[in-house]
Design a binder for these strands. Structure first.
Length: 578
DNA sequence: GCCGTTTTCGGCCCGACTGTTTTCAGTCG
C-alpha cells in the first residue's frame, strides 16, 4: 500500500473527498441518510481544530469521538491519509460521469432529475445538458415540460454570467437599501436579515430577508416591485425569491409577528445547527418549524429567538456560532464564550500611508484613528522588497519616524506607534536590517511574493520568520484574496505551534477581501493558546471601518476579548509584544 | 452511515413552491 508522506493531507482534502462521495452516492440513489452522513462528516472534518493527518498517525481512535464520525468513516479518513485516495470514490467515479455532479449544482435540478436525464438521454455534463435542452429533448421525459427546459437553459446562462458567492461587505451594499425599502412597506412590523449574512460568514450565496406582518400580500407585492429586481424566481405569500440586477439572489420570507423569533432562528441556520436544534426538540416531544414551537397541535412559543432556545433548554446562542461546531453542547454546559465586540477594540496595528501605497498621510490616518476612539495605532508601511508598493528602506523609515514624532506632537490622545509590515523573503529572512527592526514599536511580518512555493518550503519560510526575535505579529497568514486566489499551501498547525513557542501573535486581517485567518484557523490558534490581533491593513482612512468585519471573523472563531491582543490598553499590549 | 434516558435496530427536521401532476415528486433552504 503506498503511503503518503506525513503532513500532506489537509482536512479540506478529506472533506472534499467526502463531499464528492456524498454527491455521487446521491446520484446513485443511495440511502439519503448515508449521503447525509458523508456530508456531515465532510463539514466536521473541514472545521476540525486538529489535523486529521496528525490524529491518524498518533491517535486514530480519537477520530471516532467527533460527532458524525463512527468506525467506518474514521477508517475512511485513515485510508485517505495513508493512501492519498479513497477506493469508494474511485468506484463511484467509474460508475457515473463527474459532469453529472455539475448538473446537480444547477438551480432547479437535483440528483433525481439529473440521474433520470443521464439514464434516458445519456446526458452527463452541463454542455450536453444544454444541447439536449436546446434540441427539445428534455421535454420528452416524464415530469419535464417546456417550462422546465427553458428554466434549465436560463439557469445555465446565469451560472456562466454570475459568480457564485458574494463577499459579505459587497452583499451589505445591496442589502441595506433593500431593508430600508421594505421597512416602508405598509404593515411591516419587523424587518431583518437572516442566513449566512447574519452569521457573518465571509461570503454569502444568497440573502435571506425576513419580514413580520399581518399583511403578507402587500409586503410580497412591494418586494417584487423593488426597482433593483431583475428576475422573479418564485412569488408566494410566505416565500418570494428574486435576483437583483447585481446578480445577488434575495429570498424573502413573510411570517406573522408572533412567529418572528422562530422564523429568524430557522432562517438564520446554519442548516446543520437547525437540524440539531429540531432534534433536541423532538427529544422533548416538540416540533419546531419557522412558525413556532409546537407540542402536538398546540403552539407553545416562538415570538423571540430566546424563547425558541429556552424551549429546548438552552440559552440564546449568538448567530456567529451557529455552525454546529460544538455551540449546542457549550450552551447546554454553560460554556458559551462571551464574544469580543467592536467596542472593545482599542487600536489598529496595521495600516499604510503615502510613504508607500497608502492614499492618506500619516497625519490623516492618525486623526481618523483618534476619531474612531482608538488609544493607539501602528503605522506599518511596506519594506523595499514590495516594489509595487514603493516599499521603504532604513532611510525611508527614519524619515517616517521623524514625521510620526511631528504628528504625535500635534495630536494628543492617541499613541502613534512606529511600525513596519516587513516582507518575509523566500528564504524566510526579513527585508529590513536588525538595527531598524529594533527601533520599531510594532513589527508585522508578512508574505507578499513567491506564493506558489511548495507546502514544506512555505512552512519553513514562515517558521524561520517567526523565529526571528524581532517579529511580533504574522500578517495576513495565508495571503488569500477571497474569490480570487486561495491561501498558499502551508502547514498551519505547525505555524500556530511555532507562534505559540515564540510568543508571536497572529493577525486577523480585517480587510473584507482578505479576512485572513479564517474562522477555523482562528479557533485552532485560540485553542493552542496563541493570541490574535485584528488589524484593518487600511490603505486609506475609510478602510479603517473594516475593523468590524475582522471582529465578525474573530467571533466566528469563538474569540473572547482576552484572545484578541488589541482589546488591551497599550501598556498591557506592549508586554505581550515580545 | 451514525446513534442510543425509545441503546445494537430502526429511526434519522420541516415546510413552501413549482411544474406537471389530477394528488404529488422534486427541489430548495
Amino acid at each position: 500500500m503506498p503511503t503518503a508522506p506525513a503532513g500532506t493531507i489537509e482536512n479540506v482534502d478529506i472533506a472534499r473527498v467526502f463531499g464528492a462521495v456524498a454527491d455521487l452516492l446521491e446520484l446513485d440513489r443511495a440511502n439519503p441518510f448515508r449521503v447525509r452522513a458523508y456530508r456531515s462528516a465532510a463539514r466536521t472534518v473541514e472545521t476540525l481544530n486538529a489535523s486529521c493527518d496528525t490524529l491518524v498517525r498518533t491517535d486514530p481512535k480519537a477520530l471516532e469521538r467527533y460527532p458524525g464520525i463512527g468506525k467506518d468513516l474514521a477508517g475512511k479518513i485513515a485510508e485517505i491519509v495513508q493512501t492519498g485516495e479513497l477506493a469508494l470514490l474511485r468506484e463511484l467515479t467509474t460508475k457515473l460521469p463527474e459532469g453529472l455532479v455539475e448538473i446537480v449544482r444547477i438551480p432547479g435540478l437535483g440528483p433525481k432529475r439529473a440521474r433520470q436525464i443521464f439514464d434516458s438521454l445519456g446526458v452527463g455534463s452541463v454542455d450536453e445538458l444544454e444541447q439536449a435542452a436546446r434540441a427539445g429533448r428534455l421535454r420528452t421525459l416524464p415530469g419535464l415540460g417546456v417550462t422546465t427546459e427553458g428554466r434549465i437553459l436560463k439557469a445555465i446562462a446565469d451560472r456562466r454570467a454570475a459568480g457564485t458567492r458574494v463577499k459579505l461587505a459587497e452583499a451589505e451594499a445591496y442589502v441595506l437599501p433593500l431593508l430600508e425599502y421594505l421597512r416602508q412597506a405598509p404593515g411591516a412590523k419587523a424587518v431583518d436579515v437572516a442566513g449566512s449574512y447574519r452569521r457573518r460568514c465571509e461570503t454569502v450565496g444568497d440573502v435571506d430577508v425576513l419580514v413580520a406582518t399581518a399583511r403578507p400580500a402587500e409586503v410580497a407585492g412591494r418586494f417584487l416591485s423593488y426597482p433593483q429586481v431583475k428576475d422573479v424566481l418564485a412569488g408566494g405569500d410566505t416565500k418570494c425569491s428574486v435576483v437583483l440586477r447585481s446578480g445577488l439572489q434575495v429570498d424573502l420570507r413573510i411570517v406573522p409577528e408572533k412567529s418572528f423569533g422562530a422564523a429568524l432562528h430557522y432562517f438564520t441556520g446554519s442548516k446543520a445547527h437547525n437540524i440539531a436544534i429540531r432534534t433536541l426538540g423532538v427529544q422533548r416531544g416538540l416540533k419546531i418549524n419557522e412558525y413556532g414551537v409546537f407540542r402536538g397541535a398546540r403552539r407553545v412559543t416562538g415570538k423571540t429567538e430566546v424563547e425558541v432556545f429556552k424551549a429546548v433548554g438552552l440559552p440564546w446562542i449568538p448567530p456567529e456560532l451557529r455552525e454546529h461546531r460544538g455551540e449546542i453542547d457549550a450552551a447546554r454546559d454553560g460554556r458559551l464564550p462571551a464574544l469580543v465586540g467592536l467596542e472593545q477594540i482599542r487600536g489598529d496595528l496595521q495600516m499604510h500611508s503615502t510613504y508607500t501605497d497608502g492614499k492618506n498621510t500619516v497625519a490623516e490616518m492618525a486623526a481618523a484613528c483618534r476619531a474612531r476612539g482608538y488609544a493607539y495605532m501602528a503605522m506599518t508601511d511596506h519594506t523595499k522588497a514590495v516594489r509595487v508598493a514603493g516599499g521603504l528602506d532604513r532611510d525611508g523609515f527614519l524619515e517616517q519616524f521623524a514625521e510620526i514624532d511631528r504628528v504625535q506632537k500635534t495630536l494628543p490622545g492617541i499613541r502613534i506607534l512606529k511600525g513596519a509590515e516587513v516582507d518575509i523573503l523566500t528564504d524566510g529572512s526579513l527585508d529590513l536590517d536588525d538595527a531598524t527592526l529594533t527601533e520599531l514599536d510594532v513589527v508585522v511580518a508578512s508574505v507578499h511574493a513567491n506564493l506558489t512555493l511548495g507546502r514544506t518550503e512555505m512552512t519553513q519560510r514562515i517558521v524561520r520568520a517567526l523565529q526571528h526575535p524581532r517579529v511580533q505579529i504574522l500578517g495576513h497568514p495565508t495571503s488569500r484574496i477571497l474569490g480570487k486566489r486561495p491561501g498558499f499551501a502551508v502547514d498551519m498547525e505547525a505555524v500556530i505551534r511555532v507562534a505559540r513557542e515564540e510568543g508571536v501573535l497572529l493577525e486577523i486581517n480585517a480587510h473584507p477581501n482578505r479576512l485572513d485567518l479564517n474562522d477555523v484557523h482562528i479557533a485552532m490558534a485560540r485553542e493552542t493558546g496563541v493570541k490574535l490581533v485584528i488589524s484593518t491593513d487600511s490603505h486609506r482612512v475609510d478602510e479603517l471601518a473594516s475593523m468590524r468585519y475582522g471582529v465578525d471573523q474573530a467571533r466566528r472563531g469563538w474569540c473572547q476579548p482576552d484572545d484578541i491582543a488589541n482589546t488591551r490598553p497599550w501598556t498591557a499590549l506592549e508586554k505581550l509584544l515580545r
